[in-house]
Simulated assay, not measured.
Amino acid sequence: MSNRKLGLLLSVPPTHKSVDTVFQLSQAALRQRDEVYLYLIDEGVKNIRDARYEELAAGGVKLFACAYGCQQHQVPTEGISDKISLCGLVVLSGLIEACDQFLAFT
Rank of each mutant, 00 (worst) to 15 (best):
M1Q: 10
S2T: 08
N3K: 12
R4W: 00
R4P: 00
L6M: 08
L8M: 15
L9W: 13
S11R: 11
V12P: 03
P13E: 09
P14F: 02
P14S: 02
T15W: 05
D20P: 00
T21G: 01
Q24W: 11
L25D: 11
L25V: 15
Q27I: 11
A29Q: 08
L30E: 09
D34K: 12
V36W: 05
Y37K: 14
Y37V: 03
L38Q: 12
L38W: 09
Y39L: 02
L40A: 11
I41G: 07
E43V: 01
G44P: 05
G44D: 05
V45Y: 14
I48N: 04
I48L: 15
R49Y: 02
R49G: 05
A51L: 10
A51P: 15
R52P: 07
Y53N: 10
L56I: 07
A57T: 08
A58L: 13
A58T: 06
G60N: 11
V61N: 08
K62Q: 08
K62D: 04
K62I: 00
L63A: 04
A67E: 15
A67L: 12
A67G: 04
Y68I: 02
Q72A: 09
Q74S: 09
V75D: 14
I80M: 15
I80E: 11
I80F: 00
D82G: 03
D82Y: 04
I84S: 06
I84K: 03
S85T: 15
S85W: 03
S85C: 09
G88P: 04
L89I: 10
V91E: 15
L92E: 13
S93I: 02
G94E: 15
I96Y: 14
D100I: 04
Q101A: 12
F105V: 01
F105C: 02
